[in-house]
């Protein structure tokens, strides 16, 4: 039986918040180094993904939760990627039908 009643740990919550704060400082600081594009986007998004992972797993406590809750979260991200991915299959590969139009 999956139980959602999992006691939170004060220490873990505080550490998570500190980690999130540090990552925010890093992501702002990294900007001044001027990493060439597209790596700057990759770095910024990677940091955001790590931060989101921390919030989901520790604040929202998904690591101790039912696997169906995890599954529904994963599915939402997956289908968002489908929306973006398949739309870009069009928007990135359009050829002007009438040249110069």
């Amino acid at each position: 039986m999956s139980s959602g009643h999992h006691a939170l740990s004060f220490k873990v919550l505080i550490s998570t918040a500190i980690a999130l704060a540090v990552l925010t400082v890093i992501t702002v600081a990294v900007r001044s180094i001027h990493i060439p594009s597209p790596f700057n986007i990759i770095v910024a998004i990677s940091i955001a993904v790590v931060k989101a992972y921390l919030v989901v797993m520790y604040f929202m406590n998904l690591r101790n939760d039912s696997r169906f809750n995890l599954l529904s979260f994963v599915f939402s991200v997956l289908f968002l990627l489908i929306l973006v991915g398949l739309t870009m299959l069009d928007t990135m590969f359009r050829v002007p039908i009438v040249p110069g139009f």
Binding site: D90, F93, V95
Partner: peptide, 22 residues
């Protein structure tokens, strides 16, 4: 069903590549 929506748009001017895939 989530992967086929572009078949409503074959004559909309979407890219040929996406028409073929859809």
């Amino acid at each position: 069903g989530f992967l086929v929506w572009g078949h409503h748009m074959f004559v909309s001017g979407q890219s040929t590549l996406s028409s073929i895939v859809f």
